[in-house]
């Protein structure tokens, strides 16, 4: 018995070593055999929320062995018809050695019939990657959208690929509005527009913010102020008749939302951010605003929450370029 136990350990060790050696043995590499049927794949290229009026980009790739046939058509069916501008490119893209995407025409321009967009190939093509641009329609607001991509080849085969569902945001977006101290300085969140004094008087009940630029010993400079704010935050300003809303405002910094800023920051404000926002204790002015800063706001009638972002602010011209995301309550 003692003799057996003496040999068990060395034998077990030997067994483990030999097992280890065998597992390191290299197997001969064999080239993978390509599937001989029509294949496809798809992906969504656009990150962040899908916003009404904005474009969501996809890419659809198809391939078949040249000996089996060639590509005949590619189509996309969206569950909700896209807005004007929805299109599929008739060029297939590849990335060259410099990292640049190069498009090669493979067929005629796409045709769109309601919610189906089709590209028909007219060049001998075995593999292609086509881009599809879906312009989010107002009808999709708050809804789920799915996309079915389909490809056909000359040998009668067909394939399909489903993407989604993707939730379309409730919020709206408006980019690059220019505000000027003294002229276009009245901002309406409801209209997502900027007015001069005459326009503000005509839309008095919709004016939520006044843009102004002042230089004092303190730092004032670019400011967004509610019409009902203390006059010391609206110096030398005579508001048009009826412009008197008391908007709640909270300053924000380092929130360069990608949709508004189009900068390198991968930050996206989505519906959820507005749903969780609480600025009930906020003031009604924000002074000393700078480029890449912003404000959260709530309109006096509690109809909208919004984020207003400063794309740029120019002291010399006393002006700024702003963009906004707006969420209806």
């Amino acid at each position: 018995m003692k003799l057996i136990s003496r040999y068990i350990l060395p034998l077990a060790l030997l067994g483990m070593v030999s097992a280890g050696v065998t597992s390191c043995e290299k197997k001969d590499y064999a080239l993978p055999t390509a599937k001989d049927v029509l294949q496809n794949d798809a992906m969504k290229r656009t990150l962040g929320p899908s916003i009404v009026g904005d474009t969501v980009e996809f890419v659809y790739a198809m391939g078949i062995l040249p000996s089996k046939g060639k590509l005949v058509s590619a189509e996309v069916e969206a569950s909700i018809e896209g807005a004007v501008g929805t299109n599929m490119e008739n060029r297939s893209y590849y990335t060259n050695s410099s990292g640049v995407d190069v498009g090669i025409e493979i067929g005629g321009p796409a045709t769109t019939n309601k919610n189906v967009t089709t590209v028909t190939f007219n060049k001998d093509t075995s593999a292609a990657a086509l881009r599809y641009y879906y312009v989010v329609p107002a009808a999709a607001r708050g809804q789920q959208v799915t996309f079915t991509f389909r490809g056909k080849s000359s040998n009668g085969e067909s394939v399909s690929y489903k993407l989604g569902p993707y939730k379309v945001a409730k919020m709206d977006m408006k980019r690059l509005l220019t505000v000027n101290d003294g002229t276009n300085m009245y901002i309406s969140i409801e209209d997502m527009a900027v007015y001069n004094a005459a326009g503000a008087a005509a839309n008095a009940n919709k004016i939520d913010l006044v843009y102004l630029y002042r230089t004092y010993t303190s730092t004032f400079k670019h400011a967004l102020v509610a019409p009902a704010a203390d006059p010391m935050y609206l110096p030398d300003i005579t508001l048009p008749p009826g412009v008197n809303k008391n908007t709640k405002i909270q300053r924000v910094f380092s929130l360069q939302d990608y949709n508004l800023a189009r900068l390198q920051f991968g930050i996206y404000i989505d519906d959820l951010d507005f749903e969780k926002l609480d600025i009930s204790n906020a003031v009604n002015y924000a002074i000393n605003m700078k480029a890449e800063a912003g404000i959260w706001l709530k309109t006096a009638d509690n109809k909208y929450l919004a984020y207003v972002y400063f794309n740029s602010a120019t002291d010399g011209t006393k002006s700024a370029v702003i963009s906004m995301k707006r969420y209806a309550l």
Binding site: Y216, S218, Q250, V283, A286
Partner: peptide, 9 residues
């Protein structure tokens, strides 16, 4: 603090 500081927050 700067002029215009929101002292409540």
């Amino acid at each position: 603090v700067m002029f215009g500081t929101d002292l409540k927050n």
